[in-house]
């Protein structure tokens, strides 16, 4: 039989899930995936997730979009197509401010949503865990933990089972590769 992708275990509630994650991380397991039907505070951090980039990247995109919008308006109104309206100066910033602001906001929105999808590698219609029938509860009231078989510590199956059960999890299934 081919080597499985990993083992899926279920926990009774969010507190047990957080505790299990902390215990397994402390034991040195690294290839953990955790699933819950709603966001649980601190869980991603417990898994070693740090976000250093998202804020600065979103800010840069927003400033870039605003800057590009301003530059386009200034170029068109001053250089390419100067047009006298009520004798007002061609390059004054005030009339350009609104479109600049709107485009800055649009840049923020697009950077946030595209960054989220890209960071999560979505869309990704297939995941091995979807093969486990019980996994449907992950979008309802189930809290799951997946220990991947390529974890350096995952030598043999009984050891993995033992670690999971010691962390309070109930083994649900072997996830096929």
């Amino acid at each position: 039989m081919a080597k499985p992708m990993g083992w899926l275990a279920r926990l009774p509630d969010e507190g047990a899930l957080s505790a299990a994650v902390q215990q397994l991380r402390a034991q040195g397991w690294t290839r953990l995936q955790v699933f819950s039907p709603y966001p649980i505070e601190g869980l991603a951090e417990a898994l070693g997730h740090r976000s250093r980039w998202s804020g600065p990247v979103i800010l840069l995109v927003a400033l870039g979009a605003a800057g590009a919008a301003f530059a386009m308006q200034w170029y068109s109104a001053v250089i390419d197509y100067p047009f006298v309206v009520g004798g007002k100066p061609f390059g004054h910033w005030a009339p350009f401010a609104l479109v600049t602001f709107a485009m800055g906001l649009l840049g923020t929105v697009l950077a946030a949503i595209i960054g989220m999808l890209a960071g999560n590698h979505l869309p990704q219609p297939y995941h091995p865990a979807f093969n486990v029938p019980d996994f449907a509860d992950a979008s309802d009231d189930g809290f799951f933990l997946l220990l991947a078989a390529d974890d350096p510590q995952a030598g043999d199956e009984p050891a993995v089972h033992q670690a999971l059960e010691a962390a309070g999890a109930r083994i649900v299934a072997e996830v096929p590769a």
Binding site: P37, P39, L43, A44, I58, V109, G115, L122, P123, P125
Partner: peptide, 26 residues
């Protein structure tokens, strides 16, 4: 899109939601 409730996904999801919420008022 293959959403499965991964904890890291939720973290990025919440950050995106909050960023968008922050620009909603302006």
């Amino acid at each position: 899109l293959g959403w499965r409730g991964d904890a890291l996904h939720w973290a990025r999801y919440e950050r995106a939601t909050k960023t968008m919420a922050a620009v909603a008022a302006p």
